[in-house]
Write a protein that binds this DNA or RNA. Structure first.
Length: 604
RNA sequence: GGUCCCGUGGAGCAGUUGGAGUGCUCGCCGCCCUGUCAAGGCGGAGGUCGCGGGUUCAAGUCCCGUCGGGACCGCCA
């Protein structure tokens, strides 16, 4: 090593020691006769002092005048106690300083594109283009170190429980998650393409057939869909699969990992067991399959209460077998007309027709507003009680197809919480959402979901129905439930999984309902079905959205902050400039334009 | 594919109903300075106001288009 100590580790006990440090010039304070430099390395910062005195110290001091921000230097000196009154209690090393006898400039730094300074905000574009400089800052660096700790903790929990860490291919076939695939041309077989895995789903099931019994992997996954603050097309899962388990067993492991992470990295003891709510209850009460339970606000269904109303918006939904519901905005009656109109724009931006509302007068409690005029005396009289509103509150309504209307109210619930400060930013609220429906009706024609039936798998087509529905899911697919579960933290889905189908006959019936013919199935997942002929064990698993988990633990707003080199919205990497066009020769060699030769698929 | 917000020296921001010369803080360069720690003092350099078009006597400001970034919807566990 070219240094004897790490800068941030120097303490009073080192006083008198001659040490060699190496790091970067974080800041210099040149007083002419004495120069202070804050020397930073990965461990922290220590103040070094250039002062004349001896021949070599004079040489170092005069050389120090040319030091600039982020010069990389090696420094030899003596650790000394700072003069009385000059200690800096803000710094862990603030009791001491290094008096320099030798300075060696290892490399110089050009003027920086932005300051490497804790208290200066820098735009994300600049940060990502010079991410290596951004990561010299303590905040961004800490986020990556936290992620490393999370990996270590998860490996520890799983290792203790005899899980086997196994890597699976990234050049493979399409997997059944239902997102768009990234495709890779294959030079050796022009016209044929690999897909990058959307998850290791099929491989981890094969590993169960292989008798590994307990598998995990910190796996890179690829889905060619649009970006969000919590979504990149290239992301990481902590992927887990177990044999001979029930849903409760998987949930127990999931809680163990979650509890360990939050205990060590957030200093929080998560109360266990983590509460469970069924998917349908979550939709009914919170209008979301990933409810934020940091606040209490719930939805109220009014379908029965308002039956018989003449207000066309509600009557139409009820007549069509739909749903009418409401959510209260505490104190919402105090909003101006403009603010209430703003909610209409908010709803329209989400694709809704609008957001009907009634406000209750702050003193009389009398219902007011355009919708109130359309409701009968009776309906108005009992409304406040029905939805749990007090004088001074506002109530928003949604009507229409059940899930769609509930989701609108769920989004309104969140927005209400945000605007009225209901969210406790220091709270951690976890829950499991269980008993997800197996199927949803296929609506949009551009759905890339597998199969051509009128139903699509909510999770993926290998998800097992619950015991109650095992024999009967075909009879009422819309109500059939699956052993599928998500873990939710503060309104973020941080993980999800299911018990898989391991019986041939059940799998065939599910494919049948999804409109996947035996030929389709053989073509898409033939290798899996083949494997399942050879004594597949009952199995199930879970995958954590690792970027989101780290984002929450780091207390940041975007997964970009916990990814070393993230991409920006258009799939563009501001640092490398990827993606780039390819040369004609690359195009030729890659076989991008080649037609596949018809041939027998050896996987069948 | 859609909605909203942003784009002004290297960084972060201000710039009013369109009105003379685009301003501030930090950084950068030079000089001074022996106890600072987001050091201080003096001086200096650095700008196609993202780009293109339009309205106007006059555009950083208004309009249209376009590019880039961000948030959201669609899409996606």
């Amino acid at each position: 090593m070219i240094r004897t100590q790490a800068a941030g580790t120097l303490r009073a006990e080192h006083i008198g020691h001659q040490v060699t440090l190496a790091g970067w010039v974080a800041r210099r304070r040149d007083h002419g006769g004495v120069i202070f430099v804050d020397l930073r390395d990965a461990s922290g910062v220590v103040q070094v002092v250039f002062r004349g005195g001896s021949a070599e110290a004079d040489t170092a001091a005069s050389a120090a005048h040319v030091l600039r921000s982020e010069f990389c230097v090696r420094i030899v000196g003596t650790v000394e106690r700072r003069p009385a009154g000059n200690e800096n209690p803000e710094l862990p090393t603030g009791e001491v300083e290094l008096t320099v006898t030798e300075l060696d400039v290892l490399s110089e730094s050009a003027p920086l594109p932005f300051p490497i300074d804790e208290h200066v905000g820098v735009g994300e574009e600049a940060r990502l283009k010079y991410r290596y400089l951004d990561l010299r800052r303590s905040g961004p660096a800490a986020a990556l170190r936290l992620r490393s700790d999370a990996n270590r903790i998860a490996r520890g929990v799983l290792g203790e429980r005899d899980f086997v860490e196994i890597e699976t291919p990234t050049l493979t076939r399409s997997t059944p998650e239902g997102a768009r695939d990234f495709l890779v041309p294959v030079r050796l077989q022009p016209g044929s393409w690999y897909a990058l895995p959307q998850s290791p789903q099929l491989f981890k099931q094969l590993l169960m057939v292989a008798g590994m019994e307990r598998y995990y992997q910190i796996a890179r996954c690829y889905r060619d869909e649009d970006f969000r603050a919590d979504r990149q097309p290239e992301f990481t899962q902590l992927d887990i699969e177990m044999s001979f388990v029930t849903q409760d067993d998987v949930i127990e492991v999931g809680e163990e990992i979650t509890a360990a992470l939050w205990k060590e990295l957030a200093g929080v003891e998560i109360p266990r067991p983590i509460p469970r709510i069924t998917w349908h209850d979550a939709m009914d009460r919170y209008g979301s399959d990933k409810p934020d339970l940091r606040y209490d606000l719930t939805l109220t269904e009014l379908t029965e209460y308002l039956r018989g109303t003449e207000f066309r918006v509600f009557a139409g939904a009820i007549a069509a077998g739909g749903y009418v519901g409401a959510v209260v905005m505490p104190g919402g009656a105090g909003q101006s007309r403009k603010e209430l109109d703003g909610w209409q724009d908010w709803a329209k931006a989400r694709g809704a027709k609008g957001l009907a509302y009634v406000v209750f007068d702050g003193e009389s409690g009398a219902p007011k507003g355009p919708v109130a005029k359309n409701l009968s005396e009776e309906h108005l009289a009992g409304l406040a009680d029905a939805v749990g509103a007090k004088p001074g509150d506002a109530v928003f309504f949604a009507a229409g197809e059940r899930i769609g209307a509930q989701e609108l109210l769920g989004a309104a619930r969140q927005e209400i919480a945000r605007r009225t400060g209901l969210v406790d930013e220091n709270a951690w609220a976890f829950c499991w959402v269980t008993d997800a429906p197996m199927f949803l009706p296929v609506e949009s024609s551009d759905d890339v979901a597998v199969g051509s039936g009128s139903w699509t798998a909510v999770h993926h087509p290998f998800t097992s129905p619950t015991a109650e529905w095992l024999d009967s899911f075909e009879q009422d697919p819309g109500r059939a439930l699956a052993y599928a579960y998500d873990i939710v933290c503060n309104g973020n889905e941080i993980g999800g999984g299911s018990i898989r189908i391991h019986q041939d006959e059940v799998q065939r019936r599910v494919f049948d309902l999804l409109g996947i013919t035996p030929d389709d199935a053989a073509e898409k997942f033939g290798f899996l079905l083949e494997a399942f002929k050879y004594g597949p064990p009952p199995h199930g698993g879970i995958a954590f959205g690792w970027d989101r988990v780290c984002m929450l633990l780091a207390g940041v707003d975007s997964i970009r902050d916990v990814i070393a080199f993230p991409k920006s919205g258009g799939g563009f990497d501001p640092l490398t400039g990827a993606p780039t066009p390819i040369t004609p020769q690359q195009r030729r060699e890659a076989g991008v334009d080649a037609k596949p030769k018809p041939k027998a698929d050896p996987a069948q």
